[in-house]
């Protein structure tokens, strides 16, 4: 350990603001990227299911009109 106490570790030899801000922004940006990618995954799965439901609704509606129209 390079620092005598925890408070001197936090102080970073007077550069606390720059060092901790850099680390916070870095890991914040990385976290946002990862979380965003996983959230996008969920949204996409939902949209695939919705699209599939829409397609089958269209198919059903077509089948129904096909039943009626020859009469």
């Amino acid at each position: 350990m390079q620092f005598e106490s925890f408070s001197s570790f936090l102080a970073m030899g007077g550069y606390a603001f720059y060092v901790w801000m850099s680390f916070a922004v870095t890991f914040g940006a990385m976290l946002l990227l990862a979380v965003g990618s996983y959230r996008q995954h969920k949204v996409l799965l939902k949209s695939v299911v919705a699209e599939q439901a829409r397609q089958s609704r269209i198919k059903r509606a077509r089948a129904k009109t096909a039943d009626i129209s020859p009469e």
């Binding site: 350990m1 390079q2 620092f3 570790f9 970073m12 030899g13 007077g14 550069y15 720059y18 060092v19 850099s22 680390f23 870095t26």
Partner: peptide, 21 residues
Amino acid sequence: GLAFAPQDYQQGDSFRIIYIH
């Protein structure tokens, strides 16, 4: 890098940003 690496004799502890930069 933050806690155990030695201090830079010129830049002090600010050089620890190197570990992400």
